[in-house]
Write a protein that binds this DNA or RNA. Structure first.
Length: 415
RNA sequence: GCGGUCGUAGCUCAGCAGGUAGAGUACCAGAUUGUGGCUCUGGUUGUCGCGGGUUCGAGCCCCGUCGAUCGCCCCA
């Protein structure tokens, strides 16, 4: 037997209705905020990601599916959408058509990681990006959309953590102060944090190692190092969130993994997910357009993990399975009558009913059992005696009432 | 990439001192020779994750490997 590749999963029919539900929430809610869908290829030139996400991040370092194609070009299966979306916006000149772009996306992404619950090598994300505004109003619009989506999904128990990384300047000042502090305590830090102190000191704040936690607690806080512009931006974001009633928790140690973030960063967490407790996150990335060769263009966005959302819904026992896939089951008395079965099935399908006509040549009893199992509302019975009178029997499966109806009158039958 | 737990019918699981595999459910058929849902009766299904080793004999022991899961790392 051949199985799926490690870290990948089939989405079987029993799961698809829940996928359709979350996808429809994403699409409908995005529309409410006038966001339009953008779709980009599944793979890109490697530099799209290596130039944007950051060489010191794990995503670029060890998690990308990268290979040489037959033209010897380095190709990467997209590990996230933002960088590729920015590339697409620049390439198609979308940012020249209007001062604001509001885009959303749904699709598969790929990271070579150790699989775990809620972490797959092929996973799916929904996300949205607001491009063109440097103002806190854009950050808040994005947060409102994300928050609305979560509410519409039916998720009630979650936390929104927010923080600011400030401008390049204030981040640099803070970084220096943090490095100085961490260096003073270097001996007591975990090995990993010591090495991250060299490569990406901000990330030390994320550490869950017991050794680090007490040190991190006393570490300088970025909020104390914000310049005026950064502080104004962040204060306006929180003020606007308060005004519109979005609940949040300021988490000064929240540092998102990707290099391109600045100013507002945020994360949505749910306690039902275990170690991977984040089911969505995002932030502002004003420098990314320039990094990818476009004209500078401020932007802010978020992404959510669909598999993690489905895990939350499952834990909450929220499901959207169809009660029935079939409205009418056509029961055929014997195989000589199957010529009528298809004709009659089509009559009901033309009326918009979902119809199954037996294709197994099984006994009528077996066909009824099937109709019952599928929760069909009606069965239509085709049998010699009635067919000789040009009619069939229509049976209401719930009440067991049945009536003989002329085939020519079936079109008028109300189902 | 590192560590813990686990891997038996489609699904949920049992199995023991190492002696050639079982239950429930699902599915199929019959009881009811033109009619479902309840009940009863009967039936099908397994390379016991894969490969190797120990043994007269391994689902059970040993090694390796693959996969799942939990944690680390990182992130959605």
């Amino acid at each position: 037997m051949i199985n799926t590749v490690r870290g990948t999963k089939d989405i079987i029919p029993a799961m698809v209705s829940d996928w359709h539900f979350v996808e429809s929430v994403f699409r409908n809610t995005s529309k409410l905020y006038a966001y339009q869908e953008l779709r980009t290829p599944i793979f890109e030139k490697t530099e799209v990601f290596s130039r944007s996400i950051g060489d010191d991040t794990d995503i670029v370092n060890k998690e990308m599916y990268t290979f040489k194609d037959k033209g010897d070009e380095s190709i990467t299966l997209r590990p996230e959408q933002t960088a590729a979306l920015v590339r697409a916006v620049i390439q198609n000149g979308l940012d020249r058509e209007s001062s604001n772009l509001r885009l959303y996306y749904i699709g598969p992404y790929f990271r070579y990681e150790r699989p775990q619950k809620g972490r797959l090598r092929q996973f799916h994300q929904y996300g949205a990006e607001s491009i063109g505004s440097p103002n806190p109003e854009a950050d808040v619009e994005i947060l409102l959309l994300a928050n609305k989506v979560i509410k519409e999904l039916g998720i009630s128990d979650y936390k929104l953590l927010i923080n600011t990384l400030g401008t390049e300047n204030s981040r640099q000042n803070y970084k220096n102060a943090l490095i100085e502090y961490l260096n003073q305590n270097k001996e007591s830090l975990s090995e990993e944090s010591q090495s991250r102190l060299q490569t990406n000191p901000l990330r030390v704040l994320d550490s869950k190692s017991e050794k680090d936690i007490s040190i991190i607690e006393k570490a300088p806080v970025i909020l104390d190092y914000l310049d005026e512009e950064s502080a104004n931006h962040f204060n306006t974001v929180t003020k606007l969130l308060d005004a519109v009633g979005v609940k949040y928790v300021i988490q000064p140690k929240l540092v998102r993994g990707l290099d391109y973030y600045c100013h507002t960063v945020f994360e949505f967490q749910s306690s039902v997910l275990g170690a991977q407790d984040s089911f969505g996150g995002g932030g502002r990335y004003d420098g990314l357009f320039a990094q990818l060769g476009g004209k500078p263009n401020p932007a802010v966005g978020f992404a959510m993990g669909i598999e993690r959302i489905l895990l939350i819904l499952e834990a909450m026992k929220i499901t959207h399975k169809e009660e029935s896939e079939c409205d009418v089951y056509v029961v055929c008395g014997n195989k000589e009558l199957s010529i009528y079965a298809n004709q009659i099935a089509e009559i009901f399908r033309n009326k918009g009913a979902r119809v199954i006509s037996d294709i197994n040549r099984r006994s009528m009893k077996a066909q009824f059992k099937e109709a019952n199992r599928l929760n069909a509302r009606y069965s239509v019975i085709i049998a010699d005696e009635e067919v000789s009178r040009n009619s069939v029997i229509v049976k209401n499966m719930a009440s067991s009432e049945q009536q003989e109806i002329e085939i020519s009158k079936l079109e008028e039958f109300e189902i």
